[in-house]
Amino acid sequence: MGRIIGIDYGTKRVGLAVTDALQIIAGPLETVHAQDVLSYLKAYVQREPVEAMVLGMPRNLDGNATDNTQHVVGFQRKLQKEFPGIQVHLVDERFTSKMAQQTMLAGGLKKKARQDKGTVDRVSAAIILQSYLESRSYI
């Protein structure tokens, strides 16, 4: 059984998260520059078996596309081209940044750490991935 990678894609930074080997728990992995994310993922896939990738899809509160939606769709196409044997699932990412802030606050992170956008991106990716894992358990 391979791991599942969670991705919070942004045009500047990309937050990454990964499951444990049994695909039970998602944890933050890394924040990488958007232009380096494909090479980072290629290297990761060579080191670890990866079964799927979960990509956060940005939506407005009403469910319509945001300004960033087209960038995520383009990135999804790149993922599917680079990793044809790995499924790419889309997950609604509304409120994940807010939930990441609340999670870090509840976890006792200091204010400076909570303001680090890279940390927020990693935790957001973990929340996206964990929501995917939880949705599978209801199927």
Results as ranks from 00 to 15, higher is better:
H89P: 10
T66L: 00
Q80P: 11
E82Q: 07
S124V: 06
Q80S: 11
L133C: 08
Q130W: 06
N64D: 12
K12H: 13
M1H: 11
I25Q: 07
L129Q: 03
R122E: 10
Q130L: 12
V73I: 12
G63S: 13
L29C: 03
P84R: 04
H71Y: 09
E51Y: 05
I86P: 01
A100I: 00
V14K: 01
F83S: 11
I127M: 00
T119N: 12
G10D: 01
G15Y: 02
S137A: 10
V88S: 12
F75W: 05
Q130E: 11
I7A: 12
I7M: 06
L133E: 07
H33G: 13
N68F: 13
Y9I: 01
M53W: 00
G108R: 01
A43T: 13
L105T: 13
T66N: 02
F83M: 13
V32C: 03
Y132C: 07
L129I: 06
L41N: 03
V50N: 04
V72Q: 04
M1D: 10
P49K: 11
M99I: 15
E48H: 12
I5V: 06
A43R: 12
L79E: 01
D36R: 14
Q46N: 08
V54P: 00
E134L: 15
G6I: 04
Q115G: 10
I24T: 15
H33K: 12
K12C: 07
G2W: 08
S137I: 12
R59H: 14
T66A: 01
P49Q: 09
Q35H: 15
L79V: 03
L22R: 14
V120E: 05
M104L: 08
D92A: 01
P84D: 02
T11C: 07
L22C: 15
H33C: 12
K98D: 15
Q130R: 06
K81N: 01
Y44D: 07
M104T: 08
L61D: 05
A17M: 10
H71D: 08
